[in-house]
Amino acid sequence: MSGEEEENASELKLGEDFVKAKCLMNGEVAMILEHRLEQLQQVSDDPLNQMPQVFEKSLQYVKRFSRYKNPDAVRQVREILSRHELAEFELSVLGNLCPETVEEAIAMVPSLKDKGRDLDDEAIEKMLTDLALVKKFE
């Protein structure tokens, strides 16, 4: 269990199974799960009943907490964030929580301020403004 102890998301230590994995923002998960539900609807009248509780709870959760409802907006958010050389995990946290100030963004994702990263406050500010714009024009 030594690997378990070292896990820490604020330092981007996710363990070997998850470092290569793709992180998904809530909006993306909502798209995936709703698509899955539509497929099931074609073969069954009461599709949610056939899915385990984990599926249902996850779907409710991502629908409730997705800041961006529209699939194009979700795509734009990923596009904007991926211009900034963020790790997958950082990108998804920012996309999910949509911090409004630089200070808040750094509190949510402390690794933004790690040494050796070419990301100053201005760049973060610019990124947050771009995100807010997507939300505004959604």
């Binding site: 998301a9 793709k22 998904l24 809530n26 991502v62 998804s92």
Partner: peptide, 8 residues
């Protein structure tokens, strides 16, 4: 966090 991963 939700992840997209490959399992066996």
């Amino acid at each position: 966090m939700f992840f997209h991963i490959i399992l066996e």
